[in-house]
Design a protein around this nucleic acid. Structure first.
Lengths: 145, 145
DNA sequence: TGGCGGGTGGGAAATAGTGGCAAGAAGCGG
DNA sequence: CCGCTTCTTGCCACTATTTCCCACCCGCCA
């Protein structure tokens, strides 16, 4: 489980440290690796622990390679996924294509979102936080399921 | 299992390197060879490890010889299949007919799709990624089975 | 104020990707 | 039937990127 917001930087080689708190959560679950991918709805990267990723993989592996509908979805939503290891200091190397897609500059923001983590460019994060949610889209998170 | 997107080039002789990550996955499975063929649904090449290819062959062999529609489809792209070896640097030689069919120019894109790999011309890939999936065709890959 | 843990930066070594050379095989013309 | 040309295939070399390792900085806590 991942919660909290952390401001970090990406160095010249495209590396950025995963917040220590998230690393703890990962290693507690015995998952030394994460998966980076495009977040489909806006300019951010999704970071998945392996258990969540495995669920996704299971679905993808079950589909037929010739099922056009499935393949289109896989191509669009999963093909950007990139498994990355953490270096000794808990940093990940963000592949250039993903860095560019999400518009990641030097300053980035890690956001714990429960089972997954988001990674934003600082400006994109600010913008996303400032955006109003249309009234009909608001969910009462405290209400009963 | 193949995942991730990789931008490579094809040289004047029609060779292009299979991404190292895919090569690892192949050799881990003890499969030093791949099969290239037309992807029936859009302009791309399918790249199969031998085990998957064998599955396909088995299906083809078991199909009803009188199902004309299926036979026509199977024949069409199975006949395009081409077994290729990797050179010492992990490159494959894409046969001219397949290169032309998929419209492969100098810049190509390898896409891991789980059990199989897609190979696109860069422009074709961009186009395919940009295409919207009709709402009723969208699959929620994160949702419950 | 010294130790510790988290985050950042940089250099060196290894590896991946790419282009090009050259030896060998296959077709063509004399 | 022989020699020339052309294409193929294997090999080598260069460059950019990635990976690994080590050192530093900064804030927190004892």
């Amino acid at each position: 489980m991942f919660f909290g917001t952390f401001h970090h930087t990406i160095d010249a080689k495209g590396r950025t440290s995963l917040p220590a708190r998230f690393r703890e959560a990962l290693s507690a679950a015995g998952e030394p690796r994460v998966v980076l991918m495009q977040y489909p709805h806006w300019r951010a990267l999704l970071t998945l622990p392996q258990s969540v990723w495995n669920e996704l993989v299971k679905k993808v592996m079950g589909a037929s390679p010739l099922d056009a509908r499935w393949q289109r979805n896989v191509l669009k939503f999963v093909s950007s996924a990139h498994e990355v290891d953490l270096d000794v200091h808990g940093r990940v190397l963000v592949p250039p294509a993903l860095r560019e897609w999400a518009g990641l500059g030097k300053e980035v923001v890690w956001v714990g979102m429960g089972p997954v983590i988001h990674l934003y460019d600082k400006a994109a994060h600010t913008e996303q936080m400032a955006a109003e949610i249309p009234p009909d889209q608001v969910v009462d998170l405290f209400g009963k399921a």
